[in-house]
Nucleic acid binder design. Structure first.
Length: 357
DNA sequence: TATCCACCGGAATTTATGGAAG
DNA sequence: CTTCCATAAATTCCGGTGGATA
């Protein structure tokens, strides 16, 4: 049933980028000056999560770099500091700088090293609160910025003045795909990733419609449908497999998010999940109660309350836990009970004290 | 309704880690 | 090997806030 899982991976680059011709042109036009050795125009790409912003930027830049020897680098900005962003760009144009090089020196050598035009893709730039990195990159002649975020207007209000000036009128909005368009995108994935003929075009359209044009969700759903069909010993994907695929696809996306986080997050997640819904004070207490045993034999040590709250905020950002209420009435609950930590976390002590209460 | 109080989260400060220079 | 320096992570500090109490 499933011939090649990697086809459904986030990192998989399709040979052809379907239904994004206008967007590709727009980006290519902005970067056209680089063909003459000049700095390209900046571009701000906005769109809902999963509609293909990163794929568009990577695909287009990889083509331009092949055809015109254009240099580019892709920087994941989520949670990155000013220095780490500069450091990463610097690493792309030369040897990796030492970890204790001062920020000022990094900026100086970046200016020295960038001779030819360089395109920097700032991905997940929504939460660059530390706008110094933008200023620093804008200082360097030759660097053009491709900024990827969810909401351009919102992003621009937080950006430094000179950046908003540079990006004025340079916003590219990626809309969700139409049903037929997304079905077109799913088709080659089915061809490559699944055995021949196991899924019908009509079913791809069902998926495309259900996921409301969100490509990533659609791709995961296709894999989920095939997985269910395989588990149920079906020879081809049936409509009932498609119907059951969506919750599974969502679960996988959340599970991947949780897996990417640290043990601290996992322990807090497990406590919230176990409780169903829990207020801050009780959660902190239970954390303390299990901390000694849970962290035993691990390299990390238990966190103070403030740090626990920061981890919980992260879990919220990753759509794993929801935080209800604002201050004293804050309560936490996991969003999908079927997502669970891969760590073997023993909460028996908490359960005992919970029964005693 | 006024006051109290404990949680929340921003900001400042400290600690842990690791590479480079002396 | 020791000292120095820079960053990231964690902690401490503290004002804001809104439910609780009288």
């Amino acid at each position: 049933m499933i011939a090649d899982r990697s086809v459904f991976d986030d990192k998989y680059a399709p040979q052809r980028l379907l239904h994004r011709d206008a967007a590709v042109d727009r980006l290519a036009t902005a970067l056209a000056p680089t063909k003459r050795g000049q700095q390209g125009d900046d571009l701000l790409i906005e769109g809902s999560p999963g509609v293909g912003k990163t794929v568009l930027a990577r695909h287009t830049l990889s083509q331009l770099s092949e055809r015109h020897d254009l240099d580019y680098t892709h920087v994941e900005c989520m949670g990155a500091s000013t220095a780490s962003i500069i450091r990463e760009v610097l690493a792309a144009v030369g040897p990796k700088p030492a970890t204790n090089t001062p920020l000022e020196d990094l900026c100086l050598s970046l200016r020295e090293r960038v001779e030819d035009p360089l395109v920097v893709i700032l991905d997940e730039a929504s939460d660059i609160h530390d706008t110094k990195a933008l200023d620093r990159l804008a200082d360097v002649t030759g660097i053009s910025l491709v900024v990827i975020c969810y909401d351009a207007a919102e992003w621009l209000t937080h950006a430094p003045r000179r950046i908003t000036h540079r990006l004025h009128g340079q916003t590219l909005t990626l809309d969700r795909y139409g049903t037929d368009e997304l079905a077109d995108i799913l088709e080659p994935r089915a061809e490559k990733g699944l055995d021949h003929g196991v899924v019908a075009r009509r079913q791809l359209e069902m998926i495309a419609d259900e996921v409301a044009g969100i490509a990533r969700f659609g791709i995961y759903s296709l894999l989920a449908a095939a997985t269910l069909a395989q588990d149920r010993d079906h020879h081809t994907v049936r409509d009932e497999d498609v119907a059951g695929a969506y919750p599974l696809a969502r679960e996988w996306m959340r599970q991947a998010a949780l897996d990417s986080l640290s043990f601290h997050h996992h322990l807090l997640y497990a406590l919230v999940r176990d409780a169903g819904e829990i207020d801050g004070e009780t959660l902190h207490d239970r954390y303390d109660a299990v901390a000694d045993r849970a962290y035993d034999g691990r390299s990390r040590t238990p966190l103070a309350e403030r740090s626990q709250r920061r981890k919980l905020r992260k879990l919220d950002e990753y759509d794993l836990v929801e935080r209800l209420g604002s201050t004293r009435d804050r309560r936490y609950a996991v969003i999908d009970q079927s997502v669970r930590s891969g760590y073997d976390i023993d909460l028996s002590r908490v359960l005992q004290s919970g029964l005693q209460d």
